[in-house]
Simulated assay, not measured.
Amino acid sequence: MRMHNADETCGIAQAATVLGDWWNVLVLREVARGHVRFDALAAEIGLSRKVLTERLGRLVASGVLCRSLYQRRPVRYEYLLTDAGTALIPLLVAMQDWGDRWVLGDGTLTGTADTESAEHARVHALAGTRLPDGLELPGTRGAALPPVAPDAAATVLFTYPGTGIAWGEPPIPGADGCTLENRLFREAWPDFRAAGVDVRGVSTQLVHEQAEFARAEEVPYVLLSDAAHRLAAALRLPTFRGAGRLRHKRLILVVDGERAVRHVLFPVVDIPGAVAESLRLAGSLVHR
């Protein structure tokens, strides 16, 4: 398609030359989810080998993917996000958020989800999914850490919108209660540890914001920052926009020692009940 002269200096128009193709966007979505090999990409997207080869070539030429050799005989490559590709992850998550709200939903701004919604179906389909290799997030203990504790037989991974936030009027349904949730996990921490279960909390707040909260509340478990939306993209987690940024909706994943999601709690409406249920479910994995 021929571009107008004014488009030569328009960032939107130039980005559209990379993202303006349905298949290109879906390829990037799957790479962000950890499907980085040709056969896995073809299976997830349902593309012919010819079309997928063409799209991968375009994305490599555009500088958003690079090829990494993982097998010599026969030659096989993984397709990895470059820095430019990684910078597209927030855009992919924003596209998903827009689609969930305005195409799949009725336009309502909410921090929760209806049990008949596409978000509900997508999140509950995570059961059996393994978290991608190498995924790490900045943490309150000064180092990037995986969302799942490598030395635990089970991890309870919970996402929440954020603590210490003035949501404004009217309040966003389902967005409050984050401090209560963290306090309940804090109080139950000895029971989780006694059961051999780790706990990790994730929000899109910055690390220093999480660290201030962790110090003030004496949070004993790790809080991780998904401000770059890598976890949201990897698992296609539901989000909403509040107080100026995209935020995770509240959910709980119970993950085993092999990084496979075994149980999903979403939406989380009864916070005390969900914390207790996550302990029960995670404990059952440890003592099988």
Rank of each mutant, 00 (worst) to 15 (best):
G168F: 04
V269W: 05
R280D: 13
R186D: 04
L41N: 01
E44V: 04
R2F: 12
P146R: 09
D100A: 09
A232N: 01
D226S: 00
L253D: 01
N24F: 11
R122Y: 04
L235Y: 03
I12M: 15
R33K: 14
D21M: 03
W98M: 11
L223C: 05
D191K: 13
H120F: 14
V275F: 02
R215K: 14
L231N: 01
Q14I: 11
F213Q: 01
W98N: 09
A16Y: 09
A13W: 05
R76C: 13
F158R: 00
T163K: 12
A152P: 04
H229W: 04
L81V: 01
V254L: 08
F213N: 06
S117K: 00
L231E: 01
A6P: 07
L69M: 13
G196M: 05
A144R: 08
A216D: 15
Q205V: 07
G105F: 02
L56M: 06
L231A: 02
S48A: 10
T239V: 15
V275D: 02
P150A: 06
G174R: 09
I89A: 07
R186T: 08
R247L: 03
V286Q: 00
S62E: 11
G177D: 04
G99T: 11
E136T: 15
G63I: 09
F266W: 01
L104Y: 14
N24Q: 11
G128L: 06
Q205A: 09
T239D: 03
Y77S: 06
C10T: 11
L59W: 01
P220F: 02
A211P: 04
E217D: 08
A243W: 08
T112K: 03
D106V: 02
S284G: 05
P138R: 06
A16M: 14
P173R: 10
W189D: 12
P132T: 01
A16L: 13
W102C: 12
G85Y: 06
V31P: 02
T9L: 15
T179K: 10
H248N: 09
H229T: 08
L28W: 00
E8R: 14
T112H: 03
L135C: 05
T155L: 03
A118H: 10
R29L: 12
G201V: 01
R73C: 11
F213G: 01
G46S: 04
D114V: 07
L137Y: 10
I252N: 03
R29D: 13
F213T: 00
A276C: 06
W167Y: 15
R193Q: 14
K249Q: 08
